[in-house]
């Protein structure tokens, strides 16, 4: 690649590794700060290449409690939107205005109302588009998973606590992950969640919590499970909302590989 950037690329690669130091680091960061698009793109591409390093590690699942700790820490915050400036014409003395000025203000009001409505419609359309894109991408992902040669179908049947329930788990043992499609589970109580378990012999391993909609349906993508366990069964129990490390509630679904 003859871009005249070879010496920057050398530094960029070592920078992407996190190993650049000394004067070279200072110079490269200054070069990046100057907004060089070639180096930015090269750095981005190098980071994607280096991903093979962390993807080669044997996956380890974090303790469930960390997720609830984080969710507690990120308490809902109101979104701060820029405050609309008070328009000066509101403070004018209307009695001193002529009819023309009133007409102008009326037109302005109509325009502002229309603009506001258009903005609201635009926001709504953007939200609908984002939702449609997520749904489409989720379908693509499901198709991709289903078309994998490794994927195994596990049918989970409703137990005594939820006899009408059923679920299908598309389990990819290589990726140590899968997608669970659930039907007919009772609505999730406010303070509870359903928890999926991978069972290796007699040992249950938590595989994520989910809730169902009003129709008792859900599509749940499970997190990547740790190595070292050969799962031969999968089950769903009803647990406290944050999930638990060991099953404590009633088992509602069970299926074997």
């Amino acid at each position: 690649m003859a871009t005249g950037h070879e010496h920057w690329h050398e530094r960029g690669e070592i920078y992407a590794l996190g190993a650049l130091d000394g004067q070279e680091l200072k110079e490269f960061e200054a070069h990046l700060a100057s907004g060089c698009p070639i180096c930015e793109a090269y750095l981005r591409e190098t980071r994607e290449t280096l991903a093979v390093l962390h993807r080669s590690l044997r996956p380890e699942a974090p303790p469930l409690a960390i997720k609830s700790r984080i969710l507690d820490q990120i308490a809902p915050q109101a979104i701060v939107r820029p405050r609309q400036e008070k328009t000066p014409w509101l403070n004018w003395n209307w009695w001193g205005l002529g009819i023309g000025a009133i007409a102008t203000a009326a037109v302005a009001l109509v325009l502002i109302a229309n603009l506001t409505r258009t903005q609201n419609e635009l926001e709504k359309a953007k939200a609908q588009l984002a939702a449609a894109q997520i749904e489409s991408a989720q379908k693509d992902e499901l198709l991709q998973l289903l078309s994998s040669q490794d994927v195994r179908l596990v049918e989970l049947k409703g137990l005594e606590a939820a006899p009408a329930a059923k679920a299908k788990l598309f389990w990819n043992p290589g990726a140590r992950s899968g997608i669970l499609l659930i039907n007919g589970l009772p609505k999730t109580p406010t303070d509870k969640a359903y928890e999926l378990w991978g069972i290796a012999g007699t040992e249950p391993v938590p595989a994520g919590v989910f809730r169902v909609d009003d129709q008792g349906q859900a599509r749940f993508r499970m997190p990547v499970l740790g190595q070292g366990k050969n799962f031969d069964k999968f089950a769903v129990t009803l647990e406290p909302a944050a999930g638990v490390e060991k099953p404590s509630g009633p088992m509602v679904l069970l299926g074997s590989l």
Partner: peptide, 22 residues
């Protein structure tokens, strides 16, 4: 980015194992 906690929960499920492993 719009403070959607459900989306955050899903994002966590996708990447927490990778981050923790690293």
């Amino acid at each position: 980015a719009n403070q959607d906690r459900d989306a955050f929960s899903q994002l966590y499920d996708r990447f927490s194992s990778l981050v923790f492993t690293l």
